[in-house]
């Protein structure tokens, strides 16, 4: 187990070496936070109580999700794994006496922690200074939000892991990655909160794994879920995490036979 902690630590540290990228990312995320906040303000002024949110909820949603973008890697942060499959470097990873998927998960959790701590807090802090936000006041909501964010990162990892593994068959995961990125942006609720999606489209979108990476942690933060509803929301995330990780393990086993194709 210790080795995975060490891997996560290195995942954190390697991203910490790119400080200017983190600063630029925090700045961009914050700017878009303001843009999205004003768009959502316009929408909620036209349609008050849309999806059960009020204007303050909507503005909070805008800044909070800007905070989550980097940790849950909505726009990608493709796993280096895809590139290593493409170049054949994955042979080095496959021969390590450690769990292959666990290794990459640990590295990604380290990355996410850095992204949250050094990049993610900025948009939320800036939003709280400029607007009145609906921040949780009770400690247990913060705790639930922490758990929900962790599960969101795991679901996001499990999806990106599958994308990266596609390189074993497609020789290159960049096309799949682009498609997965668009799906994630739309179905995660980042473009528009999933609560605002009408009828069957809303129900459909809220059942997909992408809901688990943005919409669910945001709703937990906003206190939309309480009691059994909260347990259900976290359970929904955990279920997708388990399903997608298990799928990833199956695909890993199938991919192992394809190693020979890449890099001789």
């Amino acid at each position: 187990m210790r080795v995975y902690v060490e891997v996560a630590l290195r995942g954190f540290r390697r991203h910490a070496t790119y400080r200017s990228a983190a600063v630029a990312g925090a700045f961009t995320n914050t700017m878009f936070g303001f843009i999205r906040a004003y768009v959502l303000i316009a929408l909620w002024q036209a349609r008050p109580q849309l999806g059960g949110y009020d204007v303050v909820d909507a503005v909070t949603f805008a800044f909070l999700t800007q905070t989550l973008i980097a940790p849950v890697a909505v726009f990608g942060a493709p796993l280096e794994l895809g590139e290593r499959v493409r170049t054949g470097d994955v042979a080095m990873d496959l021969q390590r006496p450690a769990d292959f998927q666990g290794w990459w998960l640990a590295a990604d959790l380290g990355r996410a922690l850095f992204a949250l701590g050094f990049r993610g807090v900025v948009p939320l802090a800036a939003g709280a200074l400029a607007f009145r936000l609906d921040l949780p006041t009770e400690p247990h909501v913060w705790l639930a939000f922490a758990v929900s964010t962790l599960l969101a990162v795991v679901v996001s990892f499990a999806l990106r892991y599958l994308v990266a593994l596609s390189a074993f068959w497609l020789l290159d995961d960049r096309g799949v990655h682009a498609i997965a990125g668009i799906a994630a942006m739309f179905f995660s609720g980042l473009l528009l909160p999933l609560v605002a999606f009408p009828g069957w489209l809303g129900a459909f979108a809220r059942a997909l794994p992408w809901a688990a990476i943005i919409q669910v942690p945001a709703d937990v933060f906003l206190g939309e879920h309480t009691g059994a509803g909260l347990a259900g929301a976290l359970g929904f995330q955990a279920a997708w995490a388990v399903i997608l990780l298990a799928l990833g393990r199956l695909v890993t086993a199938a991919a192992a036979g394809k190693v020979v194709v890449h890099g001789g």
């Binding site: 540290r13 390697r14 170049t87 470097d89």
Partner: peptide, 8 residues
């Protein structure tokens, strides 16, 4: 190939 951590 390398098994070393590129950035560290």
């Amino acid at each position: 190939r390398t098994g070393l951590w590129w950035d560290l």
